[in-house]
């Protein structure tokens, strides 16, 4: 069984993922973008797990979903704290 909201979230998440992949080179200039992108991938993995848990291995995928969310947000928090605390010369 699946929720419409969750499927919607996953579809939009995948669209954003494609958008990022298409512009990956340009986004490379964003400070520590790989870490930021890792955070997004983990969140997307969480959204995938949310949808899949309606079909298979509910408890495991549910746990994976929450782990992915937590890991994704940790990556994002690390990214935020790694941002330079002084102005940097932009190329």
């Amino acid at each position: 069984m699946f929720h419409e909201n969750e499927v919607m979230m996953l579809v939009m998440g995948l669209i954003v993922l494609i958008l990022i992949l298409f512009n990956f080179q340009r986004l490379g200039s964003v400070f520590s973008f790989k870490l930021f992108f890792a955070g997004y991938c983990l969140m997307t993995a969480g959204w995938i797990a949310t949808v899949l848990e309606g079909y298979v291995w509910e408890s495991g995928l549910n746990f994976l979903e929450h782990v992915c969310y937590a890991a994704g947000m940790i990556a994002l928090a690390v990214w935020c704290w790694r941002l330079p605390s002084k102005s940097i010369e932009k190329p």
Binding site: F31, F63, H66, V67, Y69, A70, M73, I74, L76, A77, W79, C80, W81, L83, P84, S85, K86, S87, I88
Partner: peptide, 23 residues
């Protein structure tokens, strides 16, 4: 995991307001 998520989100917000304006 959710508690970690919330704590990480709070930390991220603090980090963002501390550093992001420089970048």
């Amino acid at each position: 995991c959710d508690a970690v998520f919330v704590a990480a989100a709070l930390t991220a917000v603090m980090g963002l307001f501390k550093n992001a304006r420089h970048v």
